[in-house]
């Protein structure tokens, strides 16, 4: 049996560049590689990779493996899993890290089952046990109510990592590394899915993931009209508008506005939670915010346990005065 060695990052490409999660994984992977005195490997898969392999080296990789093929233009489970299966067999990494993204949450389990190993999804912390060199994976469970630490003894140990849970390194263009193309034969007939169309449902204004400030509404907002008032405040603060699950499920706002375990993970400086209770699955998406401010009429609402500042009261009466005062303060 091959010796398993190295920490491998599965890199994602977005619009010709390394995606943010890839630089985060390389930052985390670098630490794990240093702790276990092994190389940090990165695999990049696309139709065209451009300058991304050099960038992966600048962000910390020692060796980059590349697979370029027109069949890999878009992510599809069955083509990508074949490439990753071959890569793992050829390279035998001890640890494989992926992002908890649309791609990673689909690819990681399929690959794990193909290889006969286990995967830990949506990890927040990863550590190497100094004695066994095994990866210990800590992830939220029970909708964020608890955390669990897992390990496994089959290789590679696969983990997906939550977006923004790890910090990237400062890129260093002078870093040296190897780039090795991998050859993988792909049979188009074996791919049983076809991507007909990719539809972007961008919300107008500032993207939630990039926003420094976010105003989020919950079930208590009561309908689509209420979100217009949140937009007022957002405009004043140059903030994005988000929602917890109930407003999305009720069709008041688009699903792409959902913050939470199954929506977007955000880490703004300021997060204003209006009329939302603070269910664990929502907090899973916003607990990385620096300052959470809550307005809720229920003093017992869970959101106050996470918030730094709070007002107990009906948002319909609290918010207009709050918005007006914020406007006045920012203008002055």
């Amino acid at each position: 049996m091959a010796e398993f060695k190295g920490i491998m990052v599965y890199g994602e490409i977005a619009e010709g560049n390394l995606s943010a999660i890839t630089t985060e994984l390389l930052g985390c992977g670098r630490r794990l590689a240093d702790e276990s005195k092994e190389d940090l490997l990165c695999i990049l898969i696309a139709d065209q990779l451009g300058e991304t392999p050099q960038k992966a080296i600048a962000f910390g990789a020692d060796k980059v493996y590349t697979v370029e093929n027109p069949l890999l233009k878009e992510y599809q489970t069955e083509s990508y899993v074949v490439v990753m299966e071959k890569a793992v067999q050829d390279i035998s990494p001890r640890v494989l890290l992926m992002g908890q993204t649309s791609v990673g949450r689909d690819l990681a389990p399929r690959l794990a089952f193909r290889l006969g190993v286990s995967a830990a999804m949506d990890c927040l912390e990863l550590d190497i046990d100094p004695e066994t060199k095994l990866l210990q994976q800590t992830r939220p469970v029970y909708g964020g109510n608890a955390r669990a630490t897992f390990s496994s003894d089959s290789f590679p140990q696969i983990a997906t990592v939550r977006q923004k849970a790890m910090a990237p390194l400062e890129p260093d263009k002078s870093r040296k590394g190897e780039i090795t193309p991998l050859k993988v034969d792909l049979d188009p007939a074996a791919i049983r899915t076809k991507v007909i169309e990719t539809v972007k449902e961008e919300v107008a204004g500032i993207k939630l993931e990039d926003a420094e400030a976010i105003v989020t509404g919950g079930r208590g907002i009561g309908g689509p009209e209420g979100f217009k008032e949140l937009e007022e405040l957002a405009k004043v603060l140059k903030a994005a508008v988000g929602a917890s699950r109930p407003p999305c499920d009720n069709g008041w706002v688009p699903d792409t506005m959902q913050v939470g375990l199954t929506g977007k993970i955000v880490t703004p400086e300021l997060y204003i939670a209006v009329a939302l209770s603070g269910a664990s699955q929502h907090l899973a998406g916003c607990s990385g915010a620096k300052n959470i401010v809550a307005i809720n009429r229920d003093a017992e609402a869970n959101i106050f346990k996470e918030a730094r500042f709070g007002v107990v009261g009906d948002w319909k009466q609290v918010l207009p005065a709050f918005t007006a005062k914020v406007k006045e303060l920012l203008a002055g």
Binding site: L270, I292, V293, A294, I295, F304, K305, E306, A307, R308, F309, G310, V311, V312, G313, D314, Q317, V318, L319, P320, A321, F322, T323, A324, K325, V326, E328, L329
Partner: peptide, 22 residues
């Protein structure tokens, strides 16, 4: 985390006080 509760004589005043506190 410990939440600092901001109060006022009316909900509107609490809202304005919250802005001042921020």
């Amino acid at each position: 985390g410990k939440c600092e509760m901001v109060e006022g004589d009316s909900p509107a005043e609490a809202g304005a006080n919250l802005a001042a506190k921020l």
